[in-house]
Nucleic acid binder design. Structure first.
Length: 455
RNA sequence: GCCGGGGUGGCCGAGUGGACCAAGGCGUCGGCCUUGAGAGCCGAUACCUCUCCGAGGUGCCCGGGUUCGAAUCCCGGCCCCGGCGCCA
Protein backbone atom coordinates (compact mmCIF):
# COMPACT_ATOMS: atom_id res chain seq x y z
CA UNK A 1 0.00 0.00 0.00
CA UNK A 2 1.11 3.52 -0.75
CA UNK A 3 2.65 4.89 2.45
CA UNK A 4 0.76 8.19 2.35
CA UNK A 5 -2.61 6.43 2.17
CA UNK A 6 -1.49 3.86 4.74
CA UNK A 7 -0.56 6.51 7.29
CA UNK A 8 -3.62 8.56 6.50
CA UNK A 9 -5.82 5.62 7.47
CA UNK A 10 -3.69 4.13 10.23
CA UNK A 11 -1.55 6.84 11.79
CA UNK A 12 -2.56 10.30 10.66
CA UNK A 13 -0.55 11.84 13.51
CA UNK A 14 2.66 10.77 11.83
CA UNK A 15 1.64 12.49 8.60
CA UNK A 16 0.83 15.64 10.54
CA UNK A 17 4.18 15.54 12.28
CA UNK A 18 5.92 15.21 8.93
CA UNK A 19 4.02 18.16 7.54
CA UNK A 20 4.78 20.21 10.64
CA UNK A 21 8.54 19.67 10.61
CA UNK A 22 8.65 20.42 6.90
CA UNK A 23 6.85 23.67 7.49
CA UNK A 24 4.04 22.39 5.24
CA UNK A 25 0.32 22.58 5.75
CA UNK A 26 -0.89 20.21 8.49
CA UNK A 27 -4.49 20.89 7.56
CA UNK A 28 -4.01 18.91 4.36
CA UNK A 29 -4.06 15.74 6.42
CA UNK A 30 -7.45 16.51 7.95
CA UNK A 31 -8.71 17.50 4.56
CA UNK A 32 -7.51 14.22 3.05
CA UNK A 33 -9.01 12.23 5.88
CA UNK A 34 -12.35 13.89 5.36
CA UNK A 35 -12.29 13.31 1.61
CA UNK A 36 -11.21 9.69 1.99
CA UNK A 37 -14.05 8.92 4.39
CA UNK A 38 -16.50 10.53 2.02
CA UNK A 39 -14.98 8.71 -0.94
CA UNK A 40 -15.38 5.33 0.75
CA UNK A 41 -18.99 6.11 1.58
CA UNK A 42 -19.77 7.13 -1.99
CA UNK A 43 -17.89 4.16 -3.40
CA UNK A 44 -20.01 1.70 -1.43
CA UNK A 45 -23.14 3.46 -2.53
CA UNK A 46 -22.15 3.42 -6.16
CA UNK A 47 -21.09 -0.21 -6.10
CA UNK A 48 -24.59 -1.07 -4.92
CA UNK A 49 -26.18 0.92 -7.70
CA UNK A 50 -23.93 -0.68 -10.28
CA UNK A 51 -24.84 -4.08 -8.95
CA UNK A 52 -28.50 -3.28 -9.49
CA UNK A 53 -27.77 -1.99 -12.97
CA UNK A 54 -25.82 -5.13 -13.89
CA UNK A 55 -28.60 -7.37 -12.69
CA UNK A 56 -31.07 -5.32 -14.65
CA UNK A 57 -29.02 -5.57 -17.84
CA UNK A 58 -28.78 -9.33 -17.41
CA UNK A 59 -32.53 -9.56 -16.92
CA UNK A 60 -33.16 -7.61 -20.10
CA UNK A 61 -31.01 -10.00 -22.09
CA UNK A 62 -33.23 -12.87 -20.98
CA UNK A 63 -36.55 -11.08 -21.06
CA UNK A 64 -39.27 -11.61 -23.63
CA UNK A 65 -39.87 -8.94 -26.21
CA UNK A 66 -42.84 -7.20 -24.60
CA UNK A 67 -41.31 -7.26 -21.12
CA UNK A 68 -38.18 -5.72 -22.55
CA UNK A 69 -39.53 -2.21 -23.24
CA UNK A 70 -40.71 -1.84 -19.69
CA UNK A 71 -37.45 -3.05 -18.21
CA UNK A 72 -35.42 -0.76 -20.45
CA UNK A 73 -37.40 2.20 -19.17
CA UNK A 74 -36.53 1.17 -15.63
CA UNK A 75 -32.89 0.64 -16.52
CA UNK A 76 -32.67 4.11 -17.99
CA UNK A 77 -33.95 5.60 -14.78
CA UNK A 78 -31.36 3.63 -12.84
CA UNK A 79 -28.69 4.82 -15.22
CA UNK A 80 -29.52 8.45 -14.57
CA UNK A 81 -29.17 7.88 -10.87
CA UNK A 82 -25.90 6.08 -11.46
CA UNK A 83 -24.56 8.88 -13.59
CA UNK A 84 -25.19 11.30 -10.74
CA UNK A 85 -23.46 9.02 -8.22
CA UNK A 86 -20.54 8.48 -10.56
CA UNK A 87 -20.07 12.19 -11.03
CA UNK A 88 -19.96 12.84 -7.30
CA UNK A 89 -17.58 9.95 -6.69
CA UNK A 90 -15.22 11.16 -9.40
CA UNK A 91 -15.27 14.65 -7.96
CA UNK A 92 -14.43 13.47 -4.46
CA UNK A 93 -11.88 11.03 -5.77
CA UNK A 94 -10.11 13.68 -7.78
CA UNK A 95 -10.13 16.05 -4.84
CA UNK A 96 -8.72 13.37 -2.55
CA UNK A 97 -6.04 12.45 -5.06
CA UNK A 98 -5.08 16.08 -5.52
CA UNK A 99 -4.64 16.51 -1.79
CA UNK A 100 -2.78 13.24 -1.30
CA UNK A 101 -0.43 13.85 -4.20
CA UNK A 102 0.34 17.30 -2.88
CA UNK A 103 1.61 15.87 0.40
CA UNK A 104 5.43 15.65 0.34
CA UNK A 105 7.24 12.45 1.21
CA UNK A 106 7.06 11.48 4.89
CA UNK A 107 10.11 12.74 6.74
CA UNK A 108 12.28 9.99 8.24
CA UNK A 109 12.86 10.07 12.01
CA UNK A 110 16.62 10.46 11.56
CA UNK A 111 16.21 13.77 9.72
CA UNK A 112 17.11 16.81 11.82
CA UNK A 113 14.23 19.19 12.37
CA UNK A 114 14.94 22.64 10.99
CA UNK A 115 13.80 25.32 8.62
CA UNK A 116 16.68 26.19 6.30
CA UNK A 117 20.06 24.94 5.13
CA UNK A 118 21.56 26.54 8.24
CA UNK A 119 19.94 23.75 10.22
CA UNK A 120 21.53 20.99 8.15
CA UNK A 121 23.66 18.81 10.38
CA UNK A 122 27.22 17.94 9.32
CA UNK A 123 27.86 14.30 10.09
CA UNK A 124 31.29 13.61 8.60
CA UNK A 125 34.25 15.61 7.45
CA UNK A 126 36.98 14.15 5.27
CA UNK A 127 40.36 15.33 4.04
CA UNK A 128 42.83 18.06 4.78
CA UNK A 129 41.33 21.32 3.52
CA UNK A 130 43.54 24.17 2.41
CA UNK A 131 42.41 27.16 4.39
CA UNK A 132 43.46 30.67 3.47
CA UNK A 133 44.26 32.72 6.55
CA UNK A 134 41.39 35.11 5.88
CA UNK A 135 38.85 32.31 6.02
CA UNK A 136 40.22 30.55 9.07
CA UNK A 137 37.62 31.75 11.52
CA UNK A 138 34.69 30.94 9.28
CA UNK A 139 36.24 27.58 8.42
CA UNK A 140 36.57 26.61 12.06
CA UNK A 141 32.96 27.57 12.56
CA UNK A 142 31.91 25.31 9.68
CA UNK A 143 33.72 22.26 11.04
CA UNK A 144 32.86 22.84 14.67
CA UNK A 145 32.61 19.61 16.60
CA UNK A 146 34.91 17.76 14.23
CA UNK A 147 38.57 17.13 14.66
CA UNK A 148 39.77 18.31 11.26
CA UNK A 149 43.35 18.57 10.15
CA UNK A 150 43.82 21.50 7.80
CA UNK A 151 46.57 23.29 5.96
CA UNK A 152 46.78 26.99 6.65
CA UNK A 153 47.88 28.92 3.57
CA UNK A 154 48.96 32.53 3.20
CA UNK A 155 48.21 32.85 -0.50
CA UNK A 156 44.65 33.12 -1.62
CA UNK A 157 43.67 30.62 -4.32
CA UNK A 158 42.08 32.02 -7.45
CA UNK A 159 38.37 31.20 -7.71
CA UNK A 160 37.39 28.49 -10.16
CA UNK A 161 35.49 30.94 -12.34
CA UNK A 162 38.33 33.42 -12.71
CA UNK A 163 40.90 30.69 -13.11
CA UNK A 164 39.07 28.84 -15.86
CA UNK A 165 37.95 31.97 -17.66
CA UNK A 166 41.28 33.77 -17.55
CA UNK A 167 43.17 30.73 -18.67
CA UNK A 168 40.91 30.29 -21.67
CA UNK A 169 39.54 26.89 -20.67
CA UNK A 170 36.05 28.31 -20.30
CA UNK A 171 34.32 31.04 -22.27
CA UNK A 172 31.03 32.10 -20.77
CA UNK A 173 31.10 35.49 -22.49
CA UNK A 174 30.78 34.08 -25.99
CA UNK A 175 28.39 31.42 -24.72
CA UNK A 176 26.07 34.10 -23.43
CA UNK A 177 26.17 35.69 -26.87
CA UNK A 178 24.91 32.51 -28.50
CA UNK A 179 22.76 30.90 -25.83
CA UNK A 180 22.46 33.29 -22.90
CA UNK A 181 23.64 33.41 -19.33
CA UNK A 182 24.71 30.23 -17.53
CA UNK A 183 26.00 28.53 -20.65
CA UNK A 184 29.62 27.90 -21.43
CA UNK A 185 32.10 26.80 -24.00
CA UNK A 186 34.63 24.47 -22.44
CA UNK A 187 37.97 23.87 -24.12
CA UNK A 188 40.92 21.52 -24.24
CA UNK A 189 42.21 20.35 -20.86
CA UNK A 190 38.88 20.74 -19.10
CA UNK A 191 37.16 18.73 -21.82
CA UNK A 192 39.63 15.90 -21.28
CA UNK A 193 39.08 16.22 -17.55
CA UNK A 194 35.32 16.11 -18.04
CA UNK A 195 35.57 12.94 -20.14
CA UNK A 196 38.00 11.31 -17.74
CA UNK A 197 35.65 11.95 -14.80
CA UNK A 198 32.79 10.35 -16.68
CA UNK A 199 34.75 7.28 -17.72
CA UNK A 200 36.19 6.87 -14.26
CA UNK A 201 32.78 7.14 -12.59
CA UNK A 202 31.27 4.56 -14.94
CA UNK A 203 34.28 2.31 -14.40
CA UNK A 204 33.92 2.40 -10.62
CA UNK A 205 30.16 1.99 -10.53
CA UNK A 206 30.02 -0.81 -13.08
CA UNK A 207 32.62 -2.63 -10.95
CA UNK A 208 30.31 -2.23 -7.99
CA UNK A 209 27.53 -4.00 -9.86
CA UNK A 210 25.70 -1.03 -11.31
CA UNK A 211 24.31 -1.45 -14.81
CA UNK A 212 25.56 1.51 -16.78
CA UNK A 213 23.03 3.24 -18.98
CA UNK A 214 22.53 6.11 -21.37
CA UNK A 215 18.85 7.01 -21.01
CA UNK A 216 16.58 9.15 -23.18
CA UNK A 217 17.34 12.84 -22.72
CA UNK A 218 13.69 13.78 -23.14
CA UNK A 219 10.62 12.55 -21.32
CA UNK A 220 6.88 12.80 -21.64
CA UNK A 221 5.11 15.02 -19.18
CA UNK A 222 3.24 12.17 -17.51
CA UNK A 223 6.46 10.42 -16.51
CA UNK A 224 8.10 13.60 -15.37
CA UNK A 225 5.14 14.28 -13.12
CA UNK A 226 5.77 10.91 -11.52
CA UNK A 227 9.33 11.65 -10.52
CA UNK A 228 9.32 15.26 -9.53
CA UNK A 229 7.15 17.83 -7.82
CA UNK A 230 5.29 20.62 -9.50
CA UNK A 231 7.53 23.25 -7.93
CA UNK A 232 10.68 21.52 -9.17
CA UNK A 233 9.05 21.18 -12.53
CA UNK A 234 8.43 24.88 -12.86
CA UNK A 235 11.90 25.86 -11.71
CA UNK A 236 13.92 23.30 -13.59
CA UNK A 237 12.42 21.78 -16.66
CA UNK A 238 12.83 22.86 -20.28
CA UNK A 239 10.01 22.00 -22.66
CA UNK A 240 10.41 21.06 -26.29
CA UNK A 241 8.10 23.28 -28.26
CA UNK A 242 5.25 21.60 -30.08
CA UNK A 243 5.89 18.19 -28.52
CA UNK A 244 4.89 16.48 -25.33
CA UNK A 245 8.57 16.24 -24.43
CA UNK A 246 10.78 17.78 -21.77
CA UNK A 247 14.57 17.83 -21.47
CA UNK A 248 15.81 15.77 -18.54
CA UNK A 249 17.18 17.69 -15.56
CA UNK A 250 19.04 14.58 -14.39
CA UNK A 251 19.38 10.93 -15.40
CA UNK A 252 17.41 10.17 -12.23
CA UNK A 253 14.22 11.02 -14.11
CA UNK A 254 14.49 8.64 -17.07
CA UNK A 255 15.91 5.96 -14.75
CA UNK A 256 12.92 6.20 -12.43
CA UNK A 257 10.64 6.07 -15.46
CA UNK A 258 12.45 3.03 -16.86
CA UNK A 259 10.35 0.50 -14.93
CA UNK A 260 7.17 2.53 -14.69
CA UNK A 261 4.06 0.40 -14.71
CA UNK A 262 6.04 -2.75 -13.98
CA UNK A 263 5.84 -5.29 -11.20
CA UNK A 264 9.35 -6.46 -10.41
CA UNK A 265 10.02 -9.93 -8.97
CA UNK A 266 11.60 -9.73 -5.52
CA UNK A 267 14.54 -11.91 -6.48
CA UNK A 268 15.55 -9.45 -9.21
CA UNK A 269 15.83 -6.61 -6.71
CA UNK A 270 17.71 -4.50 -6.06
CA UNK A 271 18.25 -2.98 -9.50
CA UNK A 272 21.34 -0.80 -9.56
CA UNK A 273 21.77 1.68 -12.38
CA UNK A 274 24.45 4.22 -13.17
CA UNK A 275 23.06 6.67 -15.69
CA UNK A 276 25.08 9.05 -17.82
CA UNK A 277 23.32 12.05 -19.24
CA UNK A 278 23.47 15.73 -19.84
CA UNK A 279 21.32 17.68 -17.36
CA UNK A 280 19.29 20.65 -18.49
CA UNK A 281 18.07 23.01 -15.79
CA UNK A 282 16.45 26.39 -15.90
CA UNK A 283 17.90 27.42 -12.54
CA UNK A 284 14.93 29.70 -12.09
CA UNK A 285 14.96 31.49 -8.77
CA UNK A 286 18.74 31.35 -8.57
CA UNK A 287 19.23 34.91 -9.79
CA UNK A 288 22.44 36.43 -8.56
CA UNK A 289 23.75 33.16 -7.13
CA UNK A 290 26.94 31.73 -8.61
CA UNK A 291 26.60 33.75 -11.75
CA UNK A 292 30.18 33.24 -12.84
CA UNK A 293 31.89 30.18 -14.16
CA UNK A 294 30.56 26.67 -14.54
CA UNK A 295 29.40 26.00 -10.99
CA UNK A 296 25.73 26.65 -11.64
CA UNK A 297 24.80 26.26 -15.30
CA UNK A 298 21.86 25.37 -17.50
CA UNK A 299 23.59 22.31 -18.92
CA UNK A 300 26.10 19.88 -17.48
CA UNK A 301 27.04 16.22 -17.53
CA UNK A 302 26.38 13.91 -14.65
CA UNK A 303 26.75 10.27 -13.72
CA UNK A 304 23.92 9.33 -11.42
CA UNK A 305 23.38 6.32 -9.17
CA UNK A 306 19.84 5.02 -9.09
CA UNK A 307 18.36 2.09 -7.16
CA UNK A 308 15.09 0.22 -7.08
CA UNK A 309 14.85 -1.94 -3.96
CA UNK A 310 12.56 -3.52 -1.37
CA UNK A 311 11.18 -1.06 1.19
CA UNK A 312 12.89 -2.80 4.09
CA UNK A 313 16.28 -2.38 2.43
CA UNK A 314 16.14 1.21 1.27
CA UNK A 315 17.71 2.82 4.35
CA UNK A 316 20.73 0.58 4.06
CA UNK A 317 21.07 1.42 0.37
CA UNK A 318 20.84 5.11 1.20
CA UNK A 319 23.98 4.75 3.31
CA UNK A 320 25.68 2.75 0.58
CA UNK A 321 24.97 5.42 -2.03
CA UNK A 322 26.43 8.25 -0.01
CA UNK A 323 29.46 6.05 0.84
CA UNK A 324 29.96 5.42 -2.88
CA UNK A 325 29.93 9.14 -3.55
CA UNK A 326 32.28 9.74 -0.63
CA UNK A 327 34.65 7.08 -1.90
CA UNK A 328 34.83 8.91 -5.20
CA UNK A 329 35.64 12.26 -3.65
CA UNK A 330 38.17 10.61 -1.38
CA UNK A 331 39.87 9.12 -4.42
CA UNK A 332 39.81 12.54 -6.06
CA UNK A 333 41.45 13.82 -2.85
CA UNK A 334 38.91 16.58 -2.47
CA UNK A 335 38.11 17.53 1.14
CA UNK A 336 34.41 17.45 1.89
CA UNK A 337 31.78 17.15 4.53
CA UNK A 338 28.50 15.27 4.48
CA UNK A 339 25.42 16.96 5.87
CA UNK A 340 22.11 15.46 6.90
CA UNK A 341 19.66 17.86 5.27
CA UNK A 342 17.08 19.18 7.71
CA UNK A 343 13.32 18.71 7.40
CA UNK A 344 12.61 22.20 6.12
CA UNK A 345 15.22 22.01 3.38
CA UNK A 346 14.51 18.48 2.17
CA UNK A 347 12.58 18.96 -1.02
CA UNK A 348 9.21 17.39 -1.66
CA UNK A 349 10.34 14.08 -3.11
CA UNK A 350 12.87 12.91 -0.51
CA UNK A 351 12.21 11.31 2.88
CA UNK A 352 15.85 11.90 3.78
CA UNK A 353 18.74 13.49 1.98
CA UNK A 354 22.48 13.70 2.39
CA UNK A 355 24.48 16.36 0.62
CA UNK A 356 28.16 15.95 0.02
CA UNK A 357 29.76 19.38 0.07
CA UNK A 358 33.28 19.92 -1.19
CA UNK A 359 35.54 22.46 0.44
CA UNK A 360 36.11 25.39 -1.91
CA UNK A 361 39.33 27.14 -0.79
CA UNK A 362 38.74 30.30 -2.82
CA UNK A 363 35.27 30.78 -1.37
CA UNK A 364 36.00 29.55 2.12
CA UNK A 365 32.86 27.47 2.02
CA UNK A 366 31.63 23.94 1.58
CA UNK A 367 29.58 23.70 -1.59
CA UNK A 368 27.18 21.00 -2.74
CA UNK A 369 28.63 18.42 -5.12
CA UNK A 370 26.40 15.45 -4.44
CA UNK A 371 22.82 15.02 -3.39
CA UNK A 372 21.78 11.59 -2.15
CA UNK A 373 18.10 10.91 -1.50
CA UNK A 374 15.87 8.10 -0.37
CA UNK A 375 12.59 8.90 -2.08
CA UNK A 376 10.91 5.76 -0.61
CA UNK A 377 7.67 5.19 -2.52
CA UNK A 378 7.08 8.78 -3.66
CA UNK A 379 8.18 8.03 -7.23
CA UNK A 380 7.24 4.36 -7.36
CA UNK A 381 3.64 5.09 -6.37
CA UNK A 382 3.25 7.77 -9.00
CA UNK A 383 4.93 5.65 -11.64
CA UNK A 384 3.36 2.35 -10.59
CA UNK A 385 6.54 0.40 -9.85
CA UNK A 386 5.71 -2.52 -7.59
CA UNK A 387 7.31 -5.74 -6.45
CA UNK A 388 6.01 -9.27 -6.20
CA UNK A 389 7.11 -12.59 -4.72
CA UNK A 390 7.81 -13.92 -8.20
CA UNK A 391 7.28 -12.95 -11.82
CA UNK A 392 3.55 -13.01 -12.40
CA UNK A 393 2.57 -13.13 -8.75
CA UNK A 394 0.29 -10.41 -7.33
CA UNK A 395 2.06 -7.22 -6.31
CA UNK A 396 2.89 -6.95 -2.61
CA UNK A 397 3.67 -3.25 -2.53
CA UNK A 398 5.61 -0.40 -4.03
CA UNK A 399 9.37 -0.56 -4.39
CA UNK A 400 11.55 2.15 -2.92
CA UNK A 401 13.72 4.26 -5.18
CA UNK A 402 16.90 6.11 -4.32
CA UNK A 403 19.18 8.38 -6.23
CA UNK A 404 22.54 9.94 -5.69
CA UNK A 405 24.97 11.91 -7.73
CA UNK A 406 28.15 10.04 -8.48
CA UNK A 407 29.90 12.81 -10.37
CA UNK A 408 28.50 16.02 -11.76
CA UNK A 409 31.40 16.91 -14.00
CA UNK A 410 31.30 20.70 -14.09
CA UNK A 411 30.99 21.10 -10.33
CA UNK A 412 33.64 18.51 -9.67
CA UNK A 413 35.95 20.38 -12.02
CA UNK A 414 35.43 23.58 -10.04
CA UNK A 415 36.39 21.72 -6.87
CA UNK A 416 39.51 20.32 -8.50
CA UNK A 417 40.49 23.75 -9.82
CA UNK A 418 40.34 25.29 -6.36
CA UNK A 419 41.62 22.47 -4.18
CA UNK A 420 44.47 21.32 -6.36
CA UNK A 421 45.72 24.76 -7.22
CA UNK A 422 49.34 25.61 -6.47
CA UNK A 423 50.44 29.13 -5.57
CA UNK A 424 51.58 29.63 -9.19
CA UNK A 425 48.13 28.73 -10.50
CA UNK A 426 49.08 25.27 -11.79
CA UNK A 427 46.39 22.71 -11.06
CA UNK A 428 47.38 19.20 -10.11
CA UNK A 429 45.18 16.52 -11.69
CA UNK A 430 43.96 13.82 -9.27
CA UNK A 431 46.13 10.74 -9.73
CA UNK A 432 43.16 8.45 -10.07
CA UNK A 433 42.23 10.11 -13.38
CA UNK A 434 45.62 9.66 -15.01
CA UNK A 435 44.76 6.26 -16.43
CA UNK A 436 41.82 7.70 -18.30
CA UNK A 437 43.73 10.70 -19.59
CA UNK A 438 46.51 8.52 -20.92
CA UNK A 439 44.16 7.28 -23.60
CA UNK A 440 44.45 10.64 -25.31
CA UNK A 441 47.64 11.96 -26.76
CA UNK A 442 46.92 15.62 -26.20
CA UNK A 443 45.24 15.27 -22.83
CA UNK A 444 47.11 16.60 -19.78
CA UNK A 445 48.26 13.82 -17.48
CA UNK A 446 49.48 15.41 -14.25
CA UNK A 447 48.93 19.16 -14.38
CA UNK A 448 46.77 21.74 -16.01
CA UNK A 449 48.77 24.84 -16.91
CA UNK A 450 46.83 28.03 -17.00
CA UNK A 451 47.65 29.65 -20.32
CA UNK A 452 46.87 33.18 -19.35
CA UNK A 453 46.17 33.83 -23.03
CA UNK A 454 42.68 34.11 -24.34
CA UNK A 455 42.05 32.82 -27.82
C1' G B 1 6.10 11.43 -42.83
C1' C B 2 2.61 8.14 -45.81
C1' C B 3 -0.08 3.28 -46.62
C1' G B 4 -1.50 -1.44 -44.52
C1' G B 5 -1.85 -4.92 -40.19
C1' G B 6 -2.04 -5.11 -34.96
C1' G B 7 -2.18 -4.07 -29.14
C1' U B 8 -6.57 -9.18 -24.34
C1' G B 9 -3.93 -11.17 -17.34
C1' G B 10 3.43 -12.31 -15.57
C1' C B 11 3.72 -14.87 -20.74
C1' C B 12 1.09 -17.37 -25.06
C1' G B 13 -3.70 -17.17 -26.84
C1' A B 14 -9.58 -17.66 -27.67
C1' G B 15 -13.37 -14.30 -27.80
C1' U B 16 -16.70 -9.27 -33.38
C1' G B 17 -22.96 -6.47 -28.73
C1' G B 18 -26.10 -9.96 -23.81
C1' A B 19 -26.40 -17.00 -21.20
C1' C B 20 -22.59 -16.77 -13.19
C1' C B 21 -17.05 -15.62 -13.18
C1' A B 22 -12.36 -12.93 -20.02
C1' A B 23 -12.16 -20.05 -22.66
C1' G B 24 -7.72 -22.82 -22.80
C1' G B 25 -2.44 -23.35 -22.14
C1' C B 26 2.41 -21.95 -19.86
C1' G B 27 4.69 -20.01 -15.60
C1' U B 28 4.44 -19.09 -10.22
C1' C B 29 2.52 -20.34 -5.16
C1' G B 30 -0.11 -23.75 -1.76
C1' G B 31 -2.13 -28.70 -0.95
C1' C B 32 -2.62 -34.08 -2.09
C1' C B 33 0.33 -38.16 -3.77
C1' U B 34 5.76 -39.89 -3.57
C1' U B 35 11.56 -42.45 0.23
C1' G B 36 12.99 -37.82 -2.76
C1' A B 37 12.47 -35.34 -7.39
C1' G B 38 9.34 -35.49 -11.55
C1' A B 39 4.67 -36.68 -13.49
C1' G B 40 -0.38 -36.56 -12.08
C1' C B 41 -4.59 -34.48 -9.41
C1' C B 42 -7.03 -30.23 -6.57
C1' G B 43 -6.98 -25.10 -5.45
C1' A B 44 -4.97 -20.13 -5.80
C1' U B 45 -2.56 -16.46 -8.94
C1' A B 46 -5.12 -7.78 -11.47
C1' C B 47 -7.15 -3.58 -8.67
C1' C B 48 -10.86 -1.23 -5.30
C1' U B 49 -14.86 -1.07 -1.49
C1' C B 50 -17.62 -3.30 2.48
C1' U B 51 -20.27 -5.88 7.61
C1' C B 52 -13.30 -8.79 5.07
C1' C B 53 -16.31 -16.18 6.37
C1' G B 54 -17.88 -13.90 2.29
C1' A B 55 -20.33 -10.16 -0.96
C1' G B 56 -20.03 -6.52 -4.59
C1' G B 57 -17.70 -3.26 -8.05
C1' U B 58 -13.95 -2.07 -11.67
C1' G B 59 -10.45 -4.01 -15.31
C1' C B 60 -9.08 -6.45 -22.27
C1' C B 61 -2.89 -0.13 -24.60
C1' C B 62 -4.74 5.23 -22.92
C1' G B 63 -8.85 8.93 -23.20
C1' G B 64 -13.74 10.07 -24.94
C1' G B 65 -18.49 8.40 -27.33
C1' U B 66 -22.84 5.12 -28.94
C1' U B 67 -26.12 1.45 -26.11
C1' C B 68 -30.63 -0.83 -21.20
C1' G B 69 -25.81 -3.61 -21.87
C1' A B 70 -18.98 -2.83 -25.02
C1' A B 71 -12.87 -6.76 -24.96
C1' U B 72 -16.32 -6.57 -29.26
C1' C B 73 -19.13 -0.71 -32.62
C1' C B 74 -17.46 4.83 -33.41
C1' C B 75 -13.78 9.09 -32.63
C1' G B 76 -8.92 10.91 -30.80
C1' G B 77 -4.04 9.59 -28.88
C1' C B 78 0.27 6.35 -27.81
C1' C B 79 3.03 2.13 -29.06
C1' C B 80 4.45 -2.38 -32.05
C1' C B 81 5.00 -5.10 -36.94
C1' G B 82 5.40 -4.88 -42.53
C1' G B 83 6.08 -1.73 -46.94
C1' C B 84 7.48 3.13 -49.11
C1' G B 85 10.05 7.76 -48.20
C1' C B 86 13.94 10.28 -45.36
C1' C B 87 18.40 9.91 -42.57
C1' A B 88 23.91 9.50 -39.00
Amino acid sequence: MWSILYYLRNDAAKLKWSQRVRGSDEGLVDKALELDTEWRRLKSHMDKLRHERNQMAAKIGKASLNERTKLIEEAKRLDRELEEAEKRLTEVEEARERVLLSIPNIVHESVPVGTSDEDNVPIRVFGRPKVWRGYLESFLQQVKGFNVEYELIDWRPVGHADLSEESGFVDTVRASKVAGARFYYMFDDLVWLDLALVMWALDILSSKGFKIVIPPYMLRRKLLEGVTSFSDFEDMIYKVEGEDLYLVATAEHPLAALHSGETLPKDELPLLYAGLSPCFRKEAGAHGKDTKGIFRVHQFTKVEQFIYCLPEESWEWHETLIRNAEEMFQKLEIPYRVVNVCSGDLGVVAAKKYDLEAWMPAQGKFREMVSCSNTTDYQSYRLGVRYARARGAPAEGYVHTLNSTAIATSRTITAILENNQEPDGVVRIPKILKKYLELFEKAPKDHIEPRKVKS
